[in-house]
Design a protein around this nucleic acid. Structure first.
Length: 149
DNA sequence: GCCAACGTTGGC
DNA sequence: GCCAACGTTGGC
């Protein structure tokens, strides 16, 4: 799950402990959120920074429910085609698990053949919420916990 | 700031 | 329903 740290960062989530993942306005990303179950783990990816990459782990705390920002005309995430009777967009709540000891950069993922099939490599982080194979998830976290290569 | 990828929109 | 035009996004 990607976020621009200027908007919402792993440190903010660490201080809140429970955060909410709102503002997703892509059907594919929304559908991935709807597939999440409480207790599922997720990687926190920082985008639009140099370098981009993964630097945290969180757990789904509350499964998808309507994102209230879609009904708020003063919100940047307002959607005038949505309504409370027919909500279009969802959010999930997430619980902080850990900040990784170092950033695992996008470059590093691109350079490791084990990750060649990851969506983030194949399609980029344009898809802001995307599924990650358990084996990739574990390998990324393990890599962060080893000393820098 | 630029560009490529790609999702969305609207005219037909 | 098709598809060209357009807008948005993320990486560089």
């Amino acid at each position: 799950m990607k976020s621009e740290p200027d908007v919402y960062s792993i440190d903010t989530l660490a201080s809140e402990r429970i955060g909410t993942w709102e503002g997703v306005r892509s059907y594919q990303a929304r559908n991935h959120m709807r597939a999440m179950k409480r207790g599922d783990l997720a990687l926190f990816y920082h985008s639009s920074v140099v370098p981009p990459g993964v630097l945290g782990v969180m757990r789904i705390h509350r499964e998808a429910y309507p994102d209230p920002t879609q009904f708020d005309p003063s919100s940047p995430y307002y959607d005038d085609k949505s309504s409370p009777s027919a909500p279009r967009w969802d959010r999930v709540d997430v619980e902080f698990v850990e900040k990784l000891p170092r950033l695992v950069t996008l470059d590093e993922l691109k350079g490791d053949p084990r990750f060649a099939d990851m969506l983030v490599i194949r399609r980029g982080m344009r898809l802001s919420v995307q599924p990650v194979a358990a084996s990739d998830f574990k390998a990324i976290v393990a890599s962060a916990k080893k000393k820098k290569r």
